[in-house]
Design a protein around this nucleic acid. Sequence first.
DNA 1: CGCTTGCCTTGACCGCCGTCAAGTCCTTCC
DNA 2: GGAAGGACTTGACGGCGGTCAAGGCAAGCG
Lengths: 221, 221
Amino acid sequence: MEQLLRIAPLFQNLTQHDLLPIANASRKVSCVAGQQLFIEGDPAIQLFLVLKGSVRLYRLTHDGKEKVIEIIRAGETFAESVALLGRPYPVCASAIDALEMIAIPAEVIKAQVEQNTGLALKMLASLSLRVHRFVNDIHALSMSTAQQKVAGYFLAFLSAEADEQCIQLPSTKALVAARLGLQPETFSRVLGRMKEQGVIREENAQIVVLAPEKLRQLRDE
Amino acid sequence: MEQLLRIAPLFQNLTQHDLLPIANASRKVSCVAGQQLFIEGDPAIQLFLVLKGSVRLYRLTHDGKEKVIEIIRAGETFAESVALLGRPYPVCASAIDALEMIAIPAEVIKAQVEQNTGLALKMLASLSLRVHRFVNDIHALSMSTAQQKVAGYFLAFLSAEADEQCIQLPSTKALVAARLGLQPETFSRVLGRMKEQGVIREENAQIVVLAPEKLRQLRDE
DNA sequence: CGCTTGCCTTGACCGCCGTCAAGTCCTTCC
DNA sequence: GGAAGGACTTGACGGCGGTCAAGGCAAGCG
């Protein structure tokens, strides 16, 4: 269990002494694809570390549609912020595919944070990063055109200057579209246009970026 | 200085012993309206507590327009998250009107957080709140129509169930429009429609909400 | 093999919102 | 008082993207 916990940046570099009470209180959970983990308004009694699979965090709009806020992938934690505040979850969560996670009681984390400055700093760093990502998201969401959103999304996956990189889309295209605030149809059309411009290619469920600089140009309009 | 610092939730309830080094390292700054505080990419060497006036946090899109990410009002702090990470500012900041702030060196905060669990917890709570607000913002941004955004924005100001509440808009309407990701013209049109539906009224630069439940209905489509 | 189901694509249509432009109201300043 | 400027409003128009509908395509199953 301790080894598993150390996957998360949150718990790396913690001494075994500090990690032990957390490990003892945590338990492993498995979920099938599509399973509901919690819904908006549920009391936040635990935070999660994803070991395998991915999780969709979303909100329901008043007319029943869902807006994807974040997609959590293996190795990442979520619900850290709420565990500390003692507030109910601000989003719904459900498993995208088969899922393995570690559930960590919020109270144990709270207790540890109070004693252990190292963990507190880690959590601060983690939350700061999340804030930064949200700033990026808000910026991306208000970028006007669908093409710019998609280009920006792909560029976030590219590591360096290398040409011809592959991108593995998390789950289905429809989900990525939702993440970007687009309809599946629109996403498909944008991909089609990019393909006929020679910017990308599709190869067995992967996106191959042929011309990163052209992608950058599309994002910048 | 110490009294001023205690305005912020971040520093309330800190012992004088803990607050003193922070107070000693901080200094007061004044700005004229429109003054640039920092731009995106600047090294983040200090965080700010606004005493008087308000601050616009924004990003520049690639074609030179600016997207308002947040509006910080008197009594609030900003740039807490970056001060800890040692990363450059992810946004630009400029004064909306005449401004008085306290600038607190990031290093002092970092040093104090390492020693003082109380401050660490405060900062965690503050960042958690910010994350929650961003979640709300992302949700609001992806709500489709302009009317829904405006209704949601107004509803966030209403405290309880009381009818006939006044809302003081921060600064100009154009700025609020930018905050909502709308053009001033669109914002104006939405206000006009709400007025002729008897949902709101305008009275010397204030919005008077006449029918909160109608507003809720508009937000929910 | 044919049927179903789910995912994706493509086409047609329409409404919302951004843009451009002109006009009104109010403040400021001489 | 009159001119100038800024904030806001109102109108006309066009494009992007959402919606609806139909069709293609692969996997699973009887």
